[in-house]
Amino acid sequence: MNVDLNADLGESFGAYTIGRDADIIPLVSSVNIACGMHAGDPVVMRRTVQRAHEAGVALGAHPGYPDLQGFGRRNMALSPDEAYAFVLYQVGALAAFCHAEGAALHHVKPHGQLYNTAAKDPALAEAIAAAVHDADAGLVLVALAGSELARAGRKAGLRVAEEFFADRAYTDDGTLVPRKEPNAVITDATFAAQRALRAVQTGTIESASGTPIHVAADTICTHGDNDRALAFVRLLRAAFAEAGITIAPPARG
């Protein structure tokens, strides 16, 4: 059994450092790199690509809403055409940095509210999937398990990796509990690792209300801006190793 372990990184900006990228990169199998719209900047993008390429992990673009002040976690009423353009722009920018380092872009994972909205909005999901396909039809699209984005990706002919969040609580319908609600972010690393292992092995977890729900887990995410991110990744790796589960990125299309 294989599973991808990914982290959202490259979210520093100018003089401000966010996350422990240098420590986390060697412990995961793929990274999702901010592309300058919700976080990151060209210097950070280049440095993160270099670090990830040197570590031999899969490189992914992490496009978000154009919302630096809100970290891409606020709603924006983008039309499908606008969403397509913003995603294509960001994927292209990250791909250029990969090319300059002799690396290949492997996947795309939308960020924050763009990701969450596309999980439920078919028009937005199709616009994102079209942008990824037109950038490179061989890219893997990372999407919330069972979401509209996952369906749109497959419809567009993309390989889709369905994602499970180790550090986020789930609603009864399989979507993420909004960050503004209590206990939306899980801080107990041991619990997070045990729950992620259960998701991979059985495809089920309990929602925030205690209801059993089905989840798919081709790839497991931890957020780089979580204060316990490093502990999460270490415990996840240990749990998977003990269970005989290999950590590896999903194959490109």
Score class of each variant (00 low, 15 high):
D4A: 12
D4I: 01
A7D: 06
L9M: 06
F13S: 10
I25L: 12
S30Q: 10
V31K: 00
I33G: 01
G40M: 08
R51Y: 08
R51G: 06
H53V: 06
E54S: 08
A61T: 04
H62K: 10
L68M: 15
Q69A: 15
G70M: 01
F71E: 03
R74E: 09
S79Q: 09
P80C: 03
E82M: 10
A83N: 08
A85C: 13
V87R: 05
L88E: 10
A93F: 11
F97G: 02
A100G: 13
Q113K: 10
Q113W: 04
D121M: 03
P122F: 02
A129R: 02
H133T: 09
A135G: 00
V140G: 04
V140C: 07
L141K: 06
A143V: 05
A143M: 06
G157I: 00
E163C: 09
A169D: 06
Y170H: 09
G174T: 03
L176W: 13
V177C: 11
R179C: 09
I186K: 07
D188N: 14
A189W: 04
F191W: 14
Q194E: 14
R198D: 14
I205D: 02
S209E: 12
G210V: 13
D218V: 06
D218E: 12
D225Q: 13
N226P: 09
N226G: 12
A231P: 02
R234M: 13
R234T: 12
R234N: 15
L235P: 00
A238D: 15
F240S: 02
I247E: 08
A248Q: 14
